[in-house]
């Protein structure tokens, strides 16, 4: 993995940008998300949140298990608005 490796594919955020966000003061996965958009795309961080947590753990010199996961947000996968309304209206 090098600086140009894309960690968040949905929002095309590179490892270097993640490290810059940490250097700029982000101390959580959500803090990195707010600075870089990593985890804000279509998959909502399903892939990248662990990669981002690993980078953060490395800089903070701790185990990735000690990094707080990002705040979970519904829905689990993208839902078309018309489908959502059909399924919820009795």
């Amino acid at each position: 993995m090098n600086a140009e490796t894309v960690l968040c594919r949905c929002e095309e955020v590179t490892r270097e940008e993640i490290l810059e966000a940490i250097a700029a003061g982000a101390t959580t996965v959500d803090g990195i998300k707010r600075r870089t958009r990593a985890g804000m795309g279509l998959c909502q961080g399903k892939t990248c949140s662990r990669l981002v947590a690993r980078e953060l753990a490395q800089v903070l010199n701790t185990h990735p298990a000690h990094i707080l996961p990002p705040r979970p947000r519904p829905p689990v996968r993208p839902v078309k608005i018309s489908d959502w309304r059909c399924n919820h209206e009795g």
Partner: peptide
């Protein structure tokens, strides 16, 4: 209607 919600 045709758009997808990705986050709430």
């Amino acid at each position: 209607e045709h758009l997808h919600i990705i986050r709430a």
